[in-house]
Design a protein around this nucleic acid. Structure first.
Lengths: 336, 336
DNA sequence: GCATATTTTGGAAACGATTCCAATTTCCTT
DNA sequence: AAGGAAATTGGAATCGTTTCCAAAATATGC
C-alpha cells in the first residue's frame, strides 16, 4: 500500500494525498476527509525511507550509550524516548562497548541515520577532545561537563561531581571521620572518577586532613564485584579507615559484602557512601547513603538543549543540574 | 557526497560504484581499488534511506522491550546488538511503557522501519493471543513460551518457569520448610508470574503440603519497593512462614528489608529465594539464593531462531534453555 | 454574468541508491 | 589474427515520497 494506491483508491492525485498526510493547508475538507478515511481503512503506513530520502534534510535524533548495563542511562533513555514519541523526530539508539570511541561512531551514525543531533549518555572528555573536529550537528554530553572543551555545538548536562563528592566528604568529616578510603574508576580514563576524587581530596584538605596514600585509592569497575574487589584490596593494606567513599551504589553493595567478610560493621566500624541513589539503596541493610543523580531532570534537560540547538540554533550550554545528598543509615558518627 | 559524485570523481559509472560498495563479483581490481580509495578519501557514507527504499525488501531487525528498567533485558539487548554489528541487519530498538500493547506497536514499527523480524523482550501471551492476526514477519518472544499459541511464525525462548519454581520449592521442602509465602506479579496479567506460582503450588501439593491462602500471595511490582510492600503485607497477615519465594532478585532485596524491619533473620527465621540471579545477589547480606536466567544464552538463541526463520524460512520453534538454581546463604534448613 | 483573484488539484521531477540489460572490453582458443 | 565467450562497464528504470509549477475549479467584486 503506497501513496499511489491511496490516490487511485480515492480518485485524487498523489500530490493531494501527500498534502493531506502532511497537514498542508490548501486542501479541501472533502478531499482531506476522503483520504483520511482511506488511510484509516487500509492501515496505510508511510514509507519512512522514501520520505526521508526526499526531504534529504535530516530528521532523526541519535542517542549513544556507553555500555548498556548502566541503569541510570537506561532510565534517561526511557525519558528521552518517551518525550520524543509522537514528535517528528525518530530516535536511533546505539550502544558502545568497551573501548569503542563514541565520537568516531557518532560521526558514522550521523551520516548513516541522517541525524539532526546526538545525545551522548556517558563518554569521556578525552575522546571528545582528541577526535572532535566537528560533528556537524549539535550534541549534548550527559554526565560530564564539556565546558572546558569550548566546542560551540557541544552542550553538556551533568551534576557537579566535584561539589557532590566534596559535600559528601564534608558531611562525613562533620561526623568525626578523619580516615577515608576511596574506590572508583580509573582517574585517567574516567573523568567523573577524577572529579569525584578531587572533590574528596579538596574537602579533606580544607579540613586539614590528608588522605593516606595507601587508602587512596582502589581502581575498579562500577559494579558490585568491582566494589567488592576494591574494598578487599584496601582492607588488605591494613590501614585504619572509618569512611569509605564509593563511586556508585553498585560498588557500595560490593563494599558492604567485603566489610561483612572482615567482620566490620556499617556504619559502626566503617561509614559507606555510594553514588547514584539507585532505588535499591533505600532497601539495603543498612540503607545506603548516596549522592542522588536526578536522572529524569538530566534527561529532560539534555533533550531540551539539543532541540533548542536544532530548532533555534541555540549555542552550546553547560548545565549543572542540582544534586542532593541522601543520608541514610550507612553513614554515621565515628565511634569514639 | 553521493554515489554519483563518486562516479564523477573516479570516472566510473554509478552502477560500478554501487557494485564495488556491495562487493559484487564482476568488477575489475582496478576499478575496485580506485573507487575504494575515493570512498576512503571522501569519507563517503551510503544513504541508507535510498538504499532501503530501493531494495524495497526489508532489511532491519526490530527489538521491542517491555520497559527499559529491566536489567536482564538490557543485557540481552546488548548481546543482540553486538551480534548484529557488522552484519547486514540494522537494528531498531523500541521501548514499551506500561500498558502499551506490544503487538500493535510491533505492527506499526515493522512497516515503519521496514523490519524483517522482531524479537520481543518481555511481553504477555495474552496480547499476542488476542491481537496477533499475523505480524507478517517472523518473531521471537523471549521469556515466555508461546508454544500454546501455535502461531507458525512466532518462536519463543524461555526458561521453564514452572519447573524452576517447582525445583526451587522442592529444595526448600527438602530443607524442612512447610510454610511458604509467595510474592510476585499479577497472575492474570503476567504469565511468568502465573507459571512460577503454579510451580510453587505443584511442588507443595506433591509433598502433601497446602499453601496457606493468607500467604498466597502478594501482588506487587518487580522492584525492591514491590518486594518490600509485598513482604510487609504478608507479615501483617500474621501467619507463620519460614520460606519466602519472590519472583525477582530486586523483590528479594525489598523482602530482606521488610524482614529486617520485623526483626526476622534470613535465613534463620525465613529463607528467601529470588529469581533472575542478578550479579548483585552474590554480594548481598546474606548472599541471595536465586534462579539463574542465562541471559546471554537466551539472547543468542533468540537471535539465531529469528535469523534462521528470516534467512531459511525455518518454522517457529519453542526452546526452553536450561536454568540453574544457585543456592547461597539466604536459604537454609528450617529451625527446629 | 464576466473578469479576476484565490483555492484546490494534477502530475512531473527529484532525492540517492540498486539492478537489469545492453554495450563494450578483455581473454581464450584455434 | 580472427572469432566467440566471458568479464566488465555504462546508463536507464525504479523504489515511495515530497514539492513545485501549471492547470482547473471555485470564490469574489463589480
Amino acid at each position: 500500500m503506497t501513496i499511489k494506491d491511496l490516490a487511485a483508491k480515492t480518485g485524487y492525485a498523489v500530490g493531494t494525498v501527500s498534502r493531506v498526510l502532511n497537514n498542508h493547508p490548501n486542501v479541501s475538507e472533502k478531499a482531506r476527509a476522503a483520504i483520511l478515511a482511506a488511510v484509516e481503512e487500509s492501515g496505510f503506513q508511510l514509507n519512512q525511507n522514501a520520505k526521508q530520502l526526499k526531504q534529504s534534510h535530516a530528521t532523526s535524533i541519535l542517542v549513544i550509550l556507553k555500555g548498556s548495563g548502566n541503569i541510570l542511562f537506561a532510565e534517561m533513555l526511557e525519558v528521552i524516548q518517551t518525550s520524543l514519541h509522537g514528535t517528528r523526530y525518530p530516535l536511533h539508539v546505539d550502544y558502545l562497548h568497551g573501548a569503542d570511541n563514541e565520537v568516531r561512531r557518532a560521526r558514522q551514525l550521523i551520516r548513516e541515520k541522517n541525524a539532526l543531533g546526538v545525545i551522548f549518555l556517558g563518554g569521556n572528555l578525552e575522546n571528545f577532545q582528541s577526535d572532535f573536529a566537528d560533528l556537524g550537528v549539535p550534541a549534548v554530553l550527559v554526565t560530564n561537563s564539556a565546558e572546558s572543551l569550548g566546542f560551540d555545538n557541544l552542550s553538556s548536562v551533568y551534576i557537579d561531581d566535584h561539589a557532590a563528592a566534596r559535600q559528601a566528604v564534608e558531611a562525613l568529616i562533620a561526623m568525626g571521620h578523619k580516615n577515608f578510603a576511596v574506590i572508583g574508576g580509573h582517574r585517567l580514563y574516567s573523568d567523573i572518577s577524577r572529579m569525584r576524587w578531587e572533590g574528596v581530596v579538596e574537602a579533606m584538605t580544607a579540613a586539614g586532613l590528608t588522605i593516606d596514600p595507601e587508602l587512596d585509592y582502589a581502581t575498579v569497575y562500577f559494579s558490585p564485584d568491582g566494589g567488592y574487589q576494591g574494598t578487599m584490596e584496601l582492607l588488605q593494606r591494613d590501614r585504619h579507615f572509618t569512611a569509605l567513599f564509593t563511586m556508585s551504589d553498585l560498588m557500595a553493595i560490593g563494599a558492604f559484602r567485603a566489610l561483612e567478610d572482615h567482620n566490620l560493621e556499617v556504619p559502626g566500624d566503617v561509614s559507606v557512601i555510594g553514588y547514584d541513589n539507585l532505588s535499591v539503596g533505600e532497601f539495603l541493610i543498612p540503607r545506603l547513603t548516596s549522592v542522588d543523580q536526578p536522572t529524569e531532570a538530566m534527561a529532560r534537560r539534555s533533550l531540551q538543549l539539543l532541540l533548542d540547538a536544532i530548532e533555534n540554533g541555540a549555542t552550546a550550554k553547560h548545565e549543572a543540574v542540582p544534586f542532593t545528598l541522601v543520608f541514610r543509615e550507612s553513614t554515621g558518627k565515628v565511634k569514639e
